[in-house]
Design a protein around this nucleic acid. Structure first.
Lengths: 129, 129
DNA sequence: CTCTAATTGAGAATACATTATCATTAAGCA
DNA sequence: TGCTTAATGATAATGTATTCTCAATTAGAG
């Protein structure tokens, strides 16, 4: 019943720690395979589920995208997705001025919000002809 | 090759026109069945695809939700999802002050954004003990 | 070093949304 | 009214993400 530290599990967590933003299962798999070529997809699912149970990582859902995962942060933040390379980056600011508990004109009470910005990242903009 | 006006197709479009916000396929199916009990799910998919091809409705993707559809509006808007009943409502304002073309501190160029507010709708708040 | 059981890898199995198939129904033009 | 064929309903098939199975491996306690 005790958790064991394996090369696979540690590599997967390292991939998430070094990521520029939340990664999907297949992203994690591809990046972790650079260290462990034989890594199986099921192992990625299992490691991610364990990390989620331990509250070490969070699931991030973006519109129309498979679930992504990021190491837990303690600050409110949003994401930017590049429309060229589809990578998702973490943003460190929030331009939405709607505190939890705000009431809209129609009476709805707002408790939280999710914002995603879309555009072109530096790498893609530079690499374009 | 000509489109035909059927009771099913008209009912499905009416359901979308009368909706409080974007509906998922199963929502549309459930509401349209109130008028046509025998309505098949495949018919809903087909009608929605036709309406999408004709640009009469738009697909709305919310984080972690099945695709939803709403009649085409001509104004930029966002959505509110009630965390009790899971219904999605259209909002008529945008609190995000990031015009297309804005450049972030890290150099990323922002072209668009998606915002979803979450909270409790009027009906759910009133109906709670 | 040994032993137990957690972990892994590969592929089968599952879950679920969406599409395809096909016989039947019915819209709408002549 | 008749005819052509788009549309429908039921269900099988498909695609894709996720989980399960099981034999083999290996972390870590004793």
């Amino acid at each position: 019943m005790n958790r064991r530290n394996t090369r696979q599990g540690e590599t997967i967590l390292a991939v998430l720690r070094n990521a520029e933003g939340p990664l999907g299962i297949s992203d994690i798999h591809a990046r972790a395979k650079e260290n462990i070529a034989s890594l199986g997809l099921a192992t990625v699912y299992r490691a991610v589920n364990r990390l989620r149970n331990d509250n070490d990582i969070l699931e991030v859902e973006l519109p129309g995208e498979e679930a992504r995962y990021e190491v837990k942060r303690n600050h409110h933040h949003h994401h930017f997705q590049c429309q060229k390379c589809n990578k998702v980056f973490e943003l460190n600011f929030c331009p939405v001025q709607i505190p939890s508990g705000t009431r809209l004109a129609n009476g709805f009470q707002v408790l939280e919000h999710h914002l995603t910005l879309y555009g072109v990242c530096n790498v893609c903009e530079t690499s374009m002809a």
